[in-house]
């Protein structure tokens, strides 16, 4: 990855984080932890990788993204607004009555959302369904899916994993956001999510383990994955929950947090300072 691309991605990721914090603070609270941990990934996907057309969100030949951990909507909303799928002003309507941006992603309401999610485990199955359909329709598009590590405690994730492996579906590139935390605390204390890379490999997947906050590692893994045929791909991303929302970093209960406008402003100033912008 060249210097200019990396700088561009870092700038857009910072802007996405700021808009995510502002979006959540406009409502006063939200699932900020998991929204912040996937920012590098969605920035890379929308600025570098995915074939999409904001003017035509249902373009049949587009790549798809299914946010299976559907509660992380706010950062994806910030990204879609930045890319022009809908006006930036929508971000201030998060979770308010009549909004097009509900807490959990909804394909019937939000341009650019490729599948509805919220009941954990279902999005990865739907992403597999989309990938199978695209193969039947002989389309070359990719389906990207983001699964939570806590979400991976759902049995359905593994039902999807076994069918994807059996079907040798190589247009599905999934990511696990391994941030080590879930609503009630640390996965280590509830159900440890060890050996995910090996687990997926035994299910017939092509699997990688990377730092999910490194654009270079995200790019390298996706590039390698696209070169492997006949297997679905899983990229396990080590991340920090609430990365970039400093009041939530390292906090046990950062799954959903209150974020007042004042807290948001201080957090954004602190983030800018840390990123030396």
């Amino acid at each position: 990855m060249d210097f200019n691309t990396l700088e561009m991605l870092k700038k857009e990721a910072l802007d996405t984080r700021i808009k995510t914090i502002e979006c959540i603070s406009s409502f006063g609270s939200g699932h900020i932890g998991g929204a912040m941990s996937i920012v590098e990934l969605i920035t890379y996907l929308y600025y570098k990788e995915m074939k999409v057309d904001p003017a035509n969100p249902s373009w049949p030949d587009r790549d798809r993204l299914v946010l299976s951990k559907g509660h992380s909507g706010p950062s994806l909303y910030a990204m879609l607004a930045k890319k022009g799928f809908f006006p930036l002003s929508w971000l201030e309507t998060l979770n308010k009555g009549g909004t097009n941006l509900p807490s959990h992603v909804d394909m019937t309401k939000t341009p650019g959302i490729d599948f509805t999610a919220g009941s954990l485990g279902q999005g990865i199955s739907a992403a597999l369904g989309i990938a199978l359909a695209l193969r039947i329709e002989k389309k070359s598009s990719y389906v990207y899916a983001i699964v939570g590590d806590g979400e991976s405690q759902e049995g359905e994730v593994w039902e999807a994993a076994e069918l994807a492996g059996a079907q040798k579906i190589d247009n599905l590139i999934a990511f696990t956001d391994l941030n080590g935390q879930q609503l009630d605390g640390y996965t280590e204390d509830i159900i440890p999510m060890h050996h995910l890379k090996e687990r997926y490999e035994t299910f017939g997947w092509d699997s990688y383990e990377i730092n999910g906050h490194s654009f270079e590692e995200i790019e390298e893994a996706i590039t390698k994955a696209k070169g492997v045929k006949g297997k679905p791909h899983m990229i396990i991303m080590h991340t920090n929950k609430s990365q970039g929302y400093i009041p939530g970093e390292g906090v046990k209960s950062n799954h959903s947090m209150s974020v007042s406008p004042e807290t948001a402003k201080e957090a954004i100033d602190a983030l800018r300072k840390r990123e030396e912008v």
Partner: peptide
Amino acid sequence: PERFINCGIAEANMAAVAAGMSATGL
């Protein structure tokens, strides 16, 4: 044969896979 998938003994996954397939117009 190309339009049939045996999803195995995993009915919940089958339902959501079908939902995903319908999202492309199948």
